[in-house]
Amino acid sequence: MTVPSFTVPSLFLAAPLTAYLAFVSPWLGRRQYDRLARRRAGDPRALVRAYRLWIGEEWAWIAVTALILALSPGAGPHDLGLTRPDDLGKVAAMAGGLSCALLAGSLVLRHAARSGRAVRGQEAVAALLPRTSTERRHAVAMAVTAGVCEEVVYRGLLIALGVGVLGLNQAVAAFLALAVFVAGHFYQGWKGMAAVTLLGFWFTAMYLATDSLLLPIVAHVLIDLRGLVLTPPPVQEKVGEPSM
């Protein structure tokens, strides 16, 4: 990885964005999720409004990230992993492993759900599970948005800032970026955050191994689609109640 160079004007955008992601977003996300869980049963549009709010917010992060790059001639999209991976053999091997893991996990989760058992980890996002076709369309949009925007910002931008601004080793910068990514899922509670830590570590490892966000983005989108849209809720599930 080359060392990106960020200008002072770009840091006036990068610093508040990083602070927001690390400290404000976790607290705000927890409040928004709790409010959604309380209103879900009595307000048929609550989930759609929440999805639209979060989709707009995450694409706003991308707009700020694009402006940071525009103000920094010494940093480019390739410094954020927005490039084609060089080692296609390594990518093919990782893609094969990803496909097998997703298939096996999906079969296990669908079997658990159809037998009426709660799917492990599903209770952490119970209020986000769609029930109608409109909600499912928004859930798909949310999964794609999260996969693209969160990888570009949490993985690409934050690691680049750690290396280029703080002078950190790439591995250390990646660890700190992972911590911020996990904090952003505070609304899921500690059990949910533990699962997010494992997934985030996996996404980070794929990024560092390929120097590209292509595979992490694809994996993130597919996992979110599976969790929100493709895994049926358990028969006995009571959707909309806070899990914590």
Rank of each mutant, 00 (worst) to 15 (best):
R131L: 10
P232V: 14
A75D: 03
Y51C: 09
L71Y: 13
A22F: 06
H185I: 06
V8L: 09
L215H: 06
A66F: 10
V140P: 05
W202T: 15
G227V: 10
A118E: 15
A113T: 06
R155D: 00
L199T: 15
S5K: 13
V218L: 13
F6V: 08
D86M: 13
K191M: 06
R155A: 03
T18A: 08
F203K: 00
T134V: 14
A209P: 00
G29I: 02
A112H: 08
S99E: 08
A126F: 13
F23L: 11
V108R: 13
V221P: 00
T197W: 07
V8K: 07
V218Y: 02
Y154Q: 10
A127C: 02
R40N: 00
M244Q: 12
F23Y: 05
A173Q: 07
A46R: 05
P4A: 07
T2Q: 04
F23T: 04
L71I: 14
A160Y: 05
L215Y: 12
A143K: 09
M206P: 00
V24T: 04
S72G: 09
Q236I: 11
R117N: 04
A171V: 15
A171H: 14
A118Q: 15
D34R: 15
A124D: 14
V153Y: 03
L17F: 07
V8N: 01
R137N: 06
F12N: 00
D211N: 13
H138F: 15
A179E: 04
L198A: 13
Q170Y: 11
W59Q: 05
I217E: 00
A41N: 04
T231L: 03
E57K: 09
S72M: 10
R39K: 10
R136D: 03
T65D: 00
Q170M: 10
L107C: 13
A174G: 07
H220Y: 07
L198T: 07
T134I: 09
F203R: 00
D34Y: 07
V239A: 11
A41V: 09
S115T: 15
L28V: 09
L71W: 10
V180Y: 04
R30P: 05
H138L: 12
V163I: 11
P16L: 10
V163K: 03
A22I: 13
V182L: 08
L98F: 07
P130N: 05
A209F: 00
G116I: 01
L36T: 08
G156Y: 02
A22D: 07
L129S: 07
T18L: 11
Q32D: 10
A112N: 08
S99I: 14
M206L: 08
A14R: 02
V119W: 01
L128W: 12
G121Q: 08
A95F: 14
G105P: 00
G240Y: 10
G56L: 05
E237H: 14
E241D: 13
L228S: 04
L71Q: 12
P26T: 03
M94Y: 04
E123D: 14
L80H: 06
P233S: 12
A143Q: 08
V144P: 11
R117H: 12
G147S: 04
T145Y: 06
